[in-house]
Amino acid sequence: MVTSILPLDVKNAVVRRRGKTLLGPVTTTVSDSGLSIVMGPNGAGKTTLLRLLHGMERVSRGGSLRWQIPEEEARARQAFVFQAPIMMRRTALDNVAYPLMTHGVSKKEARQRAGAWLERVGLTDSAQKQATVLSGGERQKLALARALIRKPEILFLDEPCANLDGRATREFETLLMQAFKDGTRVVMSTHDIGQARRLAEDVWFIHHGLILEQTPAAEFFASPKTSEARAFINGDIVE
């Protein structure tokens, strides 16, 4: 049995840029299963938090991120879907096949498996199109397929539906839930309270770079502990 990379222990992690503290100190544990939704007003630090957990931000001295296996190996078993999906200048099929090809899978097999994934996300007809001509919704679905193709143990998503309409959002959520049911740990940020209610098992509420609450979703929406979270849920401006 292969050791899981989770849970992830975070201790006193702080992200600084040019002397300014953007995030933290954060001390928390990312458990080995679940679907967590990160919420908070603009500029709260949602993106920074996800990037920190994914290992894309430098942790200031004194803080640490500890996976169950060495960090180097843990990196290879995670995936990230960015707020603005990054489309490589290749066909949709080759975009999805790319992570396999860079991890030792032959071109032929990588394309075959990518084709299967495109079918799952409903993009088969676009397989031979350049990814850069796809619509916003199609791009996010492609990005999701590309993130999932190597079966990551944990998937980070940064406001993946921010630019999608209702229907595209629903389709995206269905695909995401499928991945979750297949055993992927999900950590996703969103602005959309409706989406959070639909998906979240637990909610992380952050404000001014600090995690103010980490509570099961039902509890969070029924009785938020902090006044900031209450204001946020009520749609008021969070001070």
Binding site: A76, A79, F80, M88, Y98, T102
Partner: peptide, 12 residues
């Protein structure tokens, strides 16, 4: 354009 994606994918 590619920076974040390629870093995230753990490419050499």
């Amino acid at each position: 354009q590619y920076h974040d994606l390629l870093i995230s994918m753990n490419t050499t």
